[in-house]
Design a protein around this nucleic acid. Structure first.
Lengths: 340, 340
DNA sequence: TGTCGCTACGAAATCGATTACGTAACTCGG
DNA sequence: CCGAGTTACGTAATCGATTTCGTAGCGACA
């Protein structure tokens, strides 16, 4: 229970007023070199640290932004948050994480608390409450916010998304480039916006190359799970003309698809090349290691953080959807020892 | 930039003093029913929310605790944090997450910031700075803290760990129970405390059952990766007397081990039963689904949160290592269609 | 009726910083 | 040598709540 040393203590010992100490800390110009040195020395000697709560009260900003997410497993949040932190650390702003785990009530509570806590801005990865399906949206009084990895936001604020369409194009072109002719797309659930955009990119590229695009080659799974990937891939492979490449909507789907290929005694990538989407860490540990289209999570976070910080500094916010390019990660499931 | 409504506004409109408003909010007894109702009505009508920063300054507590972690991937942190949040929500305390991603400098900065921010307590899952290998530990002035999932803490504070020893016993007994006689232990790196404890539990159980315990049956991997699991399991299986069961130190190791078993044309669990440790989400998606010893992450978080909150309420802290029991999750890799 | 004890409320200090403003001391040109 | 301008520091208000303490009003009781 040792009493913390306050600014007054420093001032008294250094023989100046607390206003001067404050000026030294905030590096204001109107303080002499001699006094500054004495104050600095006293601060160091006493181990003084400013009380951020008191500072926040008076200064009317807390140098804190928050991420509001509902990512159950925290799979994507980690990388996204790291990007945001990288952007924020340049401004000496710290980042809070509030996870509702998909519970709207929790989300509401979190949002209220964050606002009570006077965060300077919000990154929203969870739109249940802010843009609810029904009922009024929670007002965000004067607090800037941006959407991150949230499809379909209509507010007049930036919204940062991966470039799903061009990501799918990347995958398709890669498979075409290694000589595949019957390329299947094992897409995610049709209800997701991302799958539609990826479908567009895939279809355009395949059509452009003059390759077949039969209904059987393009399927929507009903979830993103490996189990669904296994089931759908098995169905594709048992058809009359099986594909020689499968582009999967997620690494999990691809994991299941690879199991299906191997179980039928076919080789990867010799008989069937497989490529995923996301680049989750499991991708590299697959046998064979899974080629994939990497989601630019870190970069997306950086962009979101940068825009939010700019908005906090007073820059006007426009409504724009910012697409961040995906990156192709080529591994052994498309170019392997038994391939090409 | 709409000015936020303050307590004074509420007081003025309700025709009372701000002291009274404060009392209503904090549910103090000395306020009449009639006035209370009027204040409450005014608060609701104006949409007033108390400013947590101002409150924290005067009340000298912020109703906030923080988790300091260095978990790069955030694999365990998510579940742990959820446990902490569950414990904290009963006290209406919110939980901050600070991740150093293994960078000691970042950890130092986070810790300083959290203390500046006057958090009421800390859960430490990252001991670099608090108990550094070299150099002085950062003092935590009057702020209670507990260690969570941190081996080898020597401070006079509680330290919450999984019961690794009995977890290993659980696995060994299960394998014995399904009739296996040559049980191998593909343990994690020997430098980790947990592996030693698991080894103790495993050895004791096997010895007690009178089963063989040759050096070849007990191996340490040099990492926790599937690749190492694959390599070591392959070595075990190509020996003169291959095991009929493999207990792996992590689900990742087990994933590699299963691949090794299958690649040699053996069946799981028919020829070789495989069981892991951790119960990461990938376990259930394996083919076959992986039996495993589940780390009680959620419960550990709850215990840690509960103890920290108790300490904040003023209860004295003892130095004790609290072990939380692991749980056996039996799936098809030990009891499957081709097994038993 | 006078006094004691409660109850219910308000005035004002307080938490620990930031900041607008006032003012000595000093500089410098005319 | 004087007045304006600059520099360097201090005084005091302020941020928005909590909390201590004082007191008006009331009922009860002797």
């Amino acid at each position: 229970m040792s009493e913390r040393v306050t600014m007054r203590d420093v001032a008294a010992i250094a023989g100046v007023s607390s206003a001067t100490v404050s000026k030294v800390i905030n590096e204001r110009p109107d303080v002499g070199a001699e006094v500054r040195a004495r104050v600095l020395e006293t601060i160091a000697r006493l181990g003084y640290r400013p009380n951020a709560v008191a500072r926040g009260l008076r200064a009317r900003h807390t140098d804190t932004i928050a991420i509001l997410t509902d990512d159950l497993e925290g799979i994507f949040t980690n990388a996204l948050m790291r990007g945001v932190e990288d952007a924020a650390s340049a401004y000496d702003v710290s980042v809070l994480l509030a996870n509702s785990y998909g519970d709207p009530e929790k989300e509401r509570r979190h949002l209220r608390r964050l606002l009570d806590r006077q965060v300077d801005g919000l990154i929203i990865m969870s739109g249940n409450r802010v843009r609810p399906r029904s009922g009024p949206a929670l007002p965000l009084p004067g607090t800037p916010y941006v959407f991150l990895y949230e499809y379909g936001a209509a507010e007049p604020v930036p919204s940062i998304l991966p470039d799903d369409r061009s990501g799918a194009e990347l995958a398709a072109r890669h498979l075409i480039g290694i000589g595949r002719r019957r390329i299947a797309f094992l897409n995610g659930p049709a209800s997701w916006d991302a799958t539609r955009e990826r479908l567009d990119g895939f279809t355009a590229t395949i059509r452009e190359a003059g390759l077949p695009l039969e209904p059987g080659l393009v399927q929507h799974a009903s979830s993103w799970s490996p189990e669904d990937g296994f089931a759908l891939a098995t169905a594709m492979l048992t058809g009359p003309e099986p594909p020689d490449a499968i582009f999967c909507g997620s690494d999990d789907l691809a994991t299941g698809a690879m199991a299906a290929v191997l179980e039928r005694g076919l080789t990867i990538p010799g008989d069937v090349a497989v490529i995923g989407f996301d680049d989750r860490s499991l991708a590299v540990h697959q046998r064979p290691p899974l080629s994939t289209v990497a989601l630019p999570l870190h970069e997306m976070g950086k962009v979101a953080g940068g825009l939010l910080l700019a908005a906090i500094q007073g820059e006007p916010q426009r409504h724009e959807i910012i697409r961040v390019s995906c990156e192709l990660r080529i591994r052994a499931s498309t170019i392997g020892p038994d391939g090409a």
